[in-house]
Amino acid sequence: MPLLKEMAGREPQDLRNYLRMSETSFQELLQLISGKIKKQNTIMRESVSSEERLVATLQFLATGRSYENLKFSCAMSPQLLGKIIPETCAAIYDALHE
Rank of each mutant, 00 (worst) to 15 (best):
N69R: 10
Q31R: 06
L58N: 08
S47V: 06
S34C: 08
N17G: 02
S77V: 04
A62G: 10
L70I: 05
L29T: 03
P78N: 14
L80F: 08
A90Y: 07
G9S: 10
R20T: 09
S77T: 14
C74K: 12
D14F: 11
I85H: 00
S34E: 15
S66T: 10
L4H: 02
E46S: 13
I85E: 02
N17R: 13
L96H: 11
L58I: 03
G35I: 01
E98S: 14
G82Q: 02
L54P: 01
R20Y: 06
I92T: 06
R45W: 09
K83F: 07
Y67N: 08
L19K: 00
L3F: 09
F60I: 03
I85R: 01
E6A: 12
R10A: 12
I85Q: 01
E87S: 07
E6W: 13
D14N: 10
L15P: 02
A95C: 06
T88A: 00
R45G: 05
Q40R: 15
E87Q: 01
S22F: 06
S22I: 09
A62I: 04
S47H: 07
E23Q: 09
A75D: 15
L80Q: 15
K83S: 07
C89G: 07
P78G: 15
E28H: 13
A8M: 07
M1W: 03
E11A: 11
S50H: 02
L96S: 14
H97M: 12
Q59H: 14
M21W: 05
E51N: 01
L15Q: 09
L19Y: 00
A75W: 09
K83T: 10
C89K: 08
F26C: 02
I37W: 02
Q27D: 15
S66F: 08
G9P: 10
T88D: 00
T57Y: 00
A8C: 06
K36G: 06
R20D: 15
K83C: 12
L80E: 14
K36F: 12
L4Y: 04
A8I: 04
I85C: 06
N69M: 12
R45P: 05
E68Y: 12
P86C: 03
K83M: 13
A95W: 04
